[in-house]
Every structure is written in C-alpha cells, then in structure tokens.
Design a protein around this nucleic acid. Structure first.
Length: 259
DNA sequence: ATAATATGGTGAT
DNA sequence: TCACCCTATTATC
C-alpha cells in the first residue's frame, strides 16, 4: 500500500478523527510501551505527511510513523474492537480509534529532530509548498540514472517503485537515462505527471496510472501500464526489467528513449 | 491449503 | 549485503 499517496490519504482521513482531542494511547503489541505512556492523555495538535512519513504532533513532540513495506493503518469508530494482529500503537479519541500495525519506524521526535527529518526529505510532490527546483538541481547535476534518482527520497519525496516505473513509461523516458541528460522540459513533465498521478492516488486510495480507469479492482490488473507486466500496452513489445536502487524496475525499450 | 512476494527504509555486519 | 518489520495479495499446489 504505502507510496506517498497512502500517507497523505491517511493524514486527510485521520485529522478529523484525532486532531484537537485528548487521546488514549497504548501499545497492545507491547513494542511501544514507553512511547505510548509518554503520549497517553495528551492532545493531538496536528497530523502532517511529508513524503512517506507521517507526523502526529503533540505540542512540540511528534509521533513519527513510517509504514515501510507492509505497515498498515486501520481506523474505526468507537467503541473499538479488540486489536487485530500486531498493533504497535493504538490511538483513541472520543469518536475514533486508529491502529498502526507493522510500521518500519515508530518513534517520538523532539521539535528539533522533527525539523531535521523534514530537512532531509526532498520536495514532496503532494505538498503545495514543494519546490521542484530543489529536485531539479539535484537531478540535473547527477550522473546517476533517473530511475534511481526518482526513488531517492532526499531528491524527490513520495514516489515509490510502482510510480517510478509508471511515470517514466508515461513520459517515454528510459529509467537508465543519467540525471544530467534530462532536459528541464522533460523534468517538468516528470514532476507534473508525478503530482497528477499521486493526487489521483490520494483520491482513489490506490495507485492508478492508466488514464480513464476510475476504480481499483485488484492490486495491478488494469490499474497500471507496465509494472509487473509482460508486454507494453502501447506497442506490445516485451517489457524488460532490471534491478535499480534495490528494486525491480520495468521499461519498454521501444517506447522509452534515453533522454 | 500453503508459499512466495513486495508499493520501504533503517541499522547492524 | 543482510536482517528486520510481520501485512496483504498473488502464485502454486
């Protein structure tokens, strides 16, 4: 589930459930007992997403959540059901209960640590305050392949493995193109398409990169163009895949040119 | 039914 | 380079 759209969607969903209320915070699984005790009974003052990170503010301190590969948020109305699975954190307001299972990262940050985290994350395509020039300056000066750069959260935040593959295919750019061979015009297209697609992702609460598809049926299915697919929907060529930034990237050598 | 795989990133080795 | 986090879907029998 978790590329940037999932986290921004969670922020939108959970704000009205938690913000402005005193929360009962616990760790049913037991691996966040100290942190839960520290936050228990305090008022949640805001929820903000930065790339794939979610920050629940409690005054100056913040609960920092990163879902990793298989962490999940589960929300329900009160009264809450028994915790299901390994619930690291449960936060209950008067009205709702939010459970977080299997996060990669679950910690309390001081104000200073929170600012440091935000500072090391690149511009987030889903944030209106994002500055694409920061990403452009990194990309245009780098010999690293664009497929690697798009996955580097310090260069550009929010894009994950599926969006990387799909954005490059839609914009007909080979993932193996060096960053410094990307023109400003091409970069602008990549950035705009990322913004466009992740916004759709927030709305649908799913990754959809095929124009005209509205609903998510299965995980891939008709929702993506070439990710995990054998053939290109545009030209029917074989889709080639390679390891890039530690994950499998896909490309169509006919449709996607180096630059 | 059970097994394999992955939309991610950190910290140890 | 690898273990970890331990969910959800997909693949295989």
């Amino acid at each position: 589930m978790p590329e940037g759209h999932t986290i921004h969607r969670a922020a939108l969903d959970q704000r009205p459930m938690l913000v402005g209320q005193r929360l009962d915070v616990s760790s049913p699984q037991g691996r966040f007992l100290e942190g839960a005790e520290r936050l228990d009974g305090r008022t949640c003052t805001g929820i903000e997403a930065y790339g794939k990170h979610l920050l629940y503010s409690f005054g100056d301190e913040a609960l920092h959540i990163h879902l990793g590969l298989f962490g999940v948020f589960k929300t329900q109305k009160c009264p809450a059901a028994e915790p299901k699975g390994a619930v690291r954190v449960r936060m209950k307001s008067n009205s709702h209960c939010v459970d977080i299972n299997g996060p990669n990262c679950c910690e309390i940050l001081s104000l200073q640590e929170k600012l440091a985290l935000i500072a090391r994350i690149g511009p987030d395509v889903l944030r209106s305050d994002a500055d694409p020039d920061r990403a452009w300056s990194r990309i245009s000066r780098s010999k690293t392949q664009i497929g690697v750069l798009l996955m580097d959260q310090s260069v550009i935040a929010g894009i994950g493995n599926i969006y990387r593959t799909e954005i490059l295919w839609r914009q007909k750019v080979s993932p193996e193109t060096p960053g410094n061979a990307i023109t400003r015009e091409t970069f602008d297209r990549l950035w705009s398409d990322a913004v466009h697609l992740l916004k759709i992702g927030v709305k649908a609460n799913a990754i959809i990169t095929v124009d005209g598809v509205k609903k998510a049926r299965s995980r891939y299915g008709e929702r993506v163009n070439i990710f995990n697919k054998p053939n290109c929907p545009a030209c029917a060529s074989d889709i080639r895949h390679m390891e890039m930034a530690g994950r499998r990237a896909y490309t169509c050598d006919t449709c996607q040119q180096p630059s």
